[in-house]
């Protein structure tokens, strides 16, 4: 009994300790960011690896999500005789919620794991140590550019997700089912608000970008330098990023609707 309590206590303090490390790591990465932002080619290279390479999975998923929204939305709305509102439904769902959230979840799975594994292996093969011994700060050279690349990529990916998702909804609702095209677009135009819907969506995706990228970077940097350590860190990246994104989404939505 006492042993169990002790274990729980240890786990709680360990978790808090790690959170503290993560926070320090995050703040330190920000503090050395100036240098890497001045060297834009480094950040652009990472945007290519995290952002551009995630495009396919993001765009294909967006198309399917949009199409499903179109089907489900039409199916429900037609019972109330307002099937033209399917455009609004698809657009609002995507711009407010699904765009930022699903993009962040896919990003964590596609780019986050890649970042964690790469940095974990760089550590395991002493590449980060080698950099330190060359008097080059690995946080400034390796971590910070990846951080900014993730933060820049995420809102762009989320915007593209919403765009392609709306197109998917249009394909199903207008082209397949035959909802009036004029009503579909005009209702969407008049009911989606720039400040309340689009800007809020972008704010969400920036926050998710910061969260997902810093989790992936921290897990990689903190991974024990072994095969097992890196594999566990990769798993933790997906689990922690997903939970963080969903929890943050609730908090942000609560504030935004208020």
């Amino acid at each position: 009994m006492l042993k169990t309590l002790e274990n729980i206590g240890h786990q709680v303090t360990d978790a808090i300790l790690r959170l503290g490390y993560a926070a320090r790591f995050f703040i330190y990465s920000l503090s050395v960011s100036g240098e890497s932002l001045r060297r834009l080619p480094l950040v652009i290279r990472e945007i290519y690896f995290t952002g551009v390479m995630s495009l396919i999975i993001i765009l294909v998923s967006a198309l399917f999500v949009g199409m499903v929204l179109g089907l489900q939305g039409y199916n429900t709305l037609q019972r109330y005789g307002s099937s033209e509102a399917v455009g609004v439904l698809v657009a609002l769902a995507l711009v407010r919620e699904l765009g930022p959230v699903v993009t962040a979840l896919l990003f964590a799975g596609r780019a986050g794991t890649a970042i964690t594994a790469e940095i974990g292996l760089m550590k395991a093969t002493e590449q980060l140590s080698a950099m330190e011994m060359m008097a080059i700060n690995p946080i400034a050279r390796v971590v910070a550019p990846r951080f900014w690349a993730g933060v820049i990529s995420m809102p762009i990916l989320a915007a593209l997700f919403s765009l392609v998702g709306v197109f998917g909804g249009y394909l199903v609702a207008v082209q397949l089912i035959g909802v009036d095209s004029g009503a579909f677009w005009s209702q969407m135009q008049s009911n989606v608000d720039f400040r309340d819907d689009i800007v809020n969506g972008v704010i969400k995706s920036v926050v998710f970008g910061v969260a997902c990228t810093s989790i992936a970077l921290f897990e990689g940097y903190d991974a024990p330098p072994t095969a097992e350590g890196v594999s566990r860190a990769t798993t933790r990246t997906v689990v922690n990023s997903s939970l963080t994104v969903l929890a943050l989404d609730f908090i942000l939505t609560a504030f935004m609707l208020h």
Binding site: L121, M122, T125, E126, Q127, S129, A130, M133
Partner: peptide, 13 residues
């Protein structure tokens, strides 16, 4: 002022 050769090279892959 230092150079270090790591055990397995630690080249940037």
């Amino acid at each position: 002022k230092m150079g270090m050769l790591f055990q397995f090279g630690a080249l940037f892959t």
